[in-house]
Amino acid sequence: MSMDPFERLPLPEPESSDAEALAPEGGNAVSDGGFLRNMFHVFTENKLAVISAVFLIFIVVFCFIGPDLYVTNQTNTQDALLNSTQNSPPSSAHWLGTDESGFDVLGRLMYGGQISLIVGFFAALVATVIGIAYGALSGFFGGWFDAALMRFVDIGLSIPVLFLLIALVTIYRPTATMLIVVIAAVSWLVPARLIRAETLTLRTREYVQAVRVMGGTRKRIIGRHIVPNSVGTIVVFATFDVADSILLLAALGFLGLGVPAPQTDWGTMLSNGVNFASNGYWWEIYPVGLCIVLVVVALNYIGDALRDSLEVRLQRR
């Protein structure tokens, strides 16, 4: 089994000259057709990852196209309160019942899922981009510059993420955009450290030395050689980080600090649902709980398979 959560800890990787010699040679690893085909092959060998990918596509279609097929009111609280029964069990009119405001739960799953997926994806994207820039600069220039930048990362990582996140959400009112910024602001530290470690090993490689000898600028070395060769690390991290961001947003929503009503996200829905846990309104708890867990598990399996297929070093070991 390779999906070990603690492979993701930012521990220093053991150096192995043998493994390094097997790393992809030359500049842009992405545009190589053979590499891509090989990657696809290794990925599809992992049945769980393929199932996860299919499931994820289904969830995206469900959240973004579903509302066109299963039309429900999700924005007008007044109308929902007046025209439907609150907390009604599943029926032919409301396939998964209604919540405490009379909103249709199935429609709300789609509507809240849009926010959860969008915030999760873009927060991970922003965090990864900041992390790449910070880590690549730190690792490339080295010396006291690197030391100072990395001490800052150490300091940031020692603050419990949820406390920092809550402090930021209290200062800036949570809208979907602000949540993306705030979640990214607490999660760029780990990719910064990963990319820095990657840069430190890459900048001593022969082909990077060769570019330097040929008079390549620093900008060219970082942009054309170091970042593209870290693409495996980056993509794998970003996949896991989408899952983590969805969980962070769910936690914020659960604490009552998610997007303001009548907007919703999966965490907020769950938080509202558990208020009625003792009443037995299961349709307000289990479907949304299942959505969060399954999406997170699926993303973790995909990230795992991507690591196997992108890390050429691991493949041939």
Binding site: I159, P160, F163, I166, A167, T170, I171, G256, L257
Partner: peptide, 24 residues
């Protein structure tokens, strides 16, 4: 922390954040 966040009590949130970090 959660209660003071819902009350917009920023000094209290920052205080608990600092203490939680020092404890960590």
């Amino acid at each position: 922390t959660v209660q003071s966040a819902s009350n917009d009590d920023i000094p209290l949130v920052l205080g608990t954040t600092l203490i939680a970090t020092i404890a960590t």
